[in-house]
Nucleic acid binder design. Structure first.
Lengths: 106, 106
DNA sequence: ACGATATTTAGCAATTAGGCTAAATATTGG
DNA sequence: CCAATATTTAGCCTAATTGCTAAATATCGT
């Protein structure tokens, strides 16, 4: 599983990375979490995030985990709350993927 | 299901549209179909597309349907083959969504 | 130490997704 | 019309996703 030392991931690894990011973005709740974080300055507590949805808190927790596994968020503990922060640069992967379709004039 | 005459979809409709596009992009096989189409000039027959994968043809047919439902492809019959063509502009929706995250300097 | 607050983990049920095989459909060439 | 070719549809099965509730964990204030 380790990489051969160097900053750029190899092909194989990169595929998995796309997988996680695109899958994370596929759910409307998760896109909304990202949007909300984006407009609320980049970070919010788990409770604040959970409060914007109708569904049970554990459901939101799970979505947060998916987003974090995809590298689109990360969190830090702050007393008894957890502050989630958006990782905007991770979205570059999507830009990168999309770019293939504009690079091609055909 | 009809829209009120006009070119821009309303909010509600737009959400569904994101849903379909992002979901379609979440599967690696479907991303690969789009990539391949992109580099093969934009259109290929169902058979050509199916032949790039190991799985059974009907599986590919299903992926094509998902992509088409998302508006990322469309097809035309051509004799007994069906030619699928990529709808690159549809990817603008994704660019549009991503743009919210760069528009925000914070 | 205790109770309140904040949040996650565990585990269950329903739904959806994605693979397969077999059968159906449409078009072409003889 | 018949056989071959190209492709989709139907239906089945398994695995993953997503929602829920109940229980666990961690931290804070007293």
């Amino acid at each position: 599983m380790e990489r051969t030392r160097g900053s750029k991931p190899q092909r194989e690894a990169r595929v998995d990375v796309y997988e996680a990011v695109f899958t994370a973005l596929a759910h409307p709740t998760r896109r909304r979490i990202l949007m909300t974080l984006n407009f609320e300055g980049g970070s919010m507590t788990a409770g604040e995030i959970a409060s914007i949805f109708e569904h049970a808190w554990p459901t939101t927790t799970r979505h947060l985990r998916v987003l974090e596994a995809a590298g689109l968020l990360h969190h830090r503990r702050e007393g008894r709350t957890r502050v989630y922060q958006i990782e905007r640069r991770r979205l570059d992967l999507v830009h990168e993927w999309l770019a293939w379709f504009t690079k091609t004039p055909a």
